[in-house]
Design a protein around this nucleic acid. Structure first.
Lengths: 93, 93
DNA sequence: TTATCATTTGCATTATTGTGCATATATACA
DNA sequence: TGTATATATGCACAATAATGCAAATGATAA
């Protein structure tokens, strides 16, 4: 989980909407359900999900012809807290 | 401090280097000192600092002909922790 | 097998962002 | 005053990223 990749992934408004909807549902969502959160084409949502997945923010599980996505809550939270701690300390890196 | 703007600001490698150098020094740095961290033109560093400032991540204090930048440590850390908490909860927003 | 549905990917286009150079602004000093 | 230094900004260009459509892939059902 590279911080640069994570920040890049979170820097897009549509991906944030996608992340929010995935967070709000406790169960995993398929691409079609996620796509309801924004007006862009479903193929675009699929790409955004791939970016979030490559960044380690979400995970995908294939079941039948559908792919269910869910947020890696603890990992993402841990990373953000670690970065917060580093910034708070007088010496970052 | 808007999260989208913050993530956008942190999504660039040169801005992360700038933030790291600002974090590593306990005292504030002027633009010239900051510019040592990356190979881009000093005018580019100035622009990156402006982006970080507009995002609320750093603050600037002008003294004489120099401008000293420093990280808003507690604010940034608090924001990241808040986002972490939201992601960890079953319901994000 | 064929048809259908869910998702992904190739490709072209548009939009956004990063960059360097030259110039402007602001401050200090001779 | 003029000159030098630090920083910011206008502008053009390059690089990157987002988007939509069409087509491909993978999986199920008829």
């Amino acid at each position: 989980m590279k911080t640069e990749q994570v920040f890049k992934a979170l820097a897009d408004p549509n991906r944030m909407k996608i992340l929010n909807i995935l967070c709000s549902r406790d169960c995993a969502c398929n691409v079609g359900e996620v796509a309801g959160c924004c007006t862009v084409d479903l193929s675009v949502v699929s790409r955004h999900l791939a970016i979030l997945k490559n960044a380690g923010i979400v995970s995908a599980i294939k079941r039948g012809k559908e792919v269910f996505y869910h947020v890696n809550r603890t990992e993402v939270a841990a990373l953000l807290r670690q970065i917060a701690a580093n910034i708070e300390k007088p010496c970052c890196s």
